[in-house]
Amino acid sequence: MDTTLDIFVKAIFSENMIFAYFLGMCSYLAVSKTVKTAVGLGAAVIFVLGITIPMNYLLQNYVLKEGALGWLNPEYGLDGAHTIDLSFLSFIMFIAVIASMVQLVEMLVEKFAPALYGALGIFLPLIAVNCSILGGALFMADRQYSTIADATAFGIGSGIGWFLAIVAIAAIREKIRYSQVPAPLRGLGITFILTGLMGIAFMSFMGIEYKNGDKKAETEQVEAPKTSQNIELNK
């Protein structure tokens, strides 16, 4: 398995939530008009990912996964607990944890940064259904991180990656406000093109290998440029 540091760096750059998986696009596109709101939402996403992923990790490993309830056997004498598989509940449990955490963030932001609360508007409660948060929890379950430290590193790293992406595009959108973008492309159109171009720039980090990299967890999308390259080098 990767070391904790590898997981952290990988989550920020080579497996960036936005540019490698295109998750959490709705708020990424909608709240990136100014740097200030982008920083606020990005920080909220780091916070939510950093809290919910370790929580979901505990839930996954001690309640939901097949055999996860095995700890009931010796301590409470419940025979057969280790055969229970509750993983069909994972979606609803993960979402429940995420939604309650988002409520907490919302209260905190409203209390301590009312201006930001107003600027973020509907997108703050909508973090609960931000694909990158649930996506992060599901990736965590799928990749079977061995310790809670790994899961936390993954969560915070993914959050930072998302933060970087939204802050970078917000600064660019502030800059291109003065560009003469053709009328049909103004607004979302140019932002989509921009995201694609930024994806090219982020590809620089894809394929960085870690000594015992967990190949299975990487999707084909990420693998593609690497394999074609490797074949070429091996010829």
Partner: peptide, 20 residues
Amino acid sequence: NPAYPEGVMLAILFMNVMAP
């Protein structure tokens, strides 16, 4: 990065994105 022997092009593109 074992996939790319040359990194200058990608590094500059990345910093183009980060410049603003």
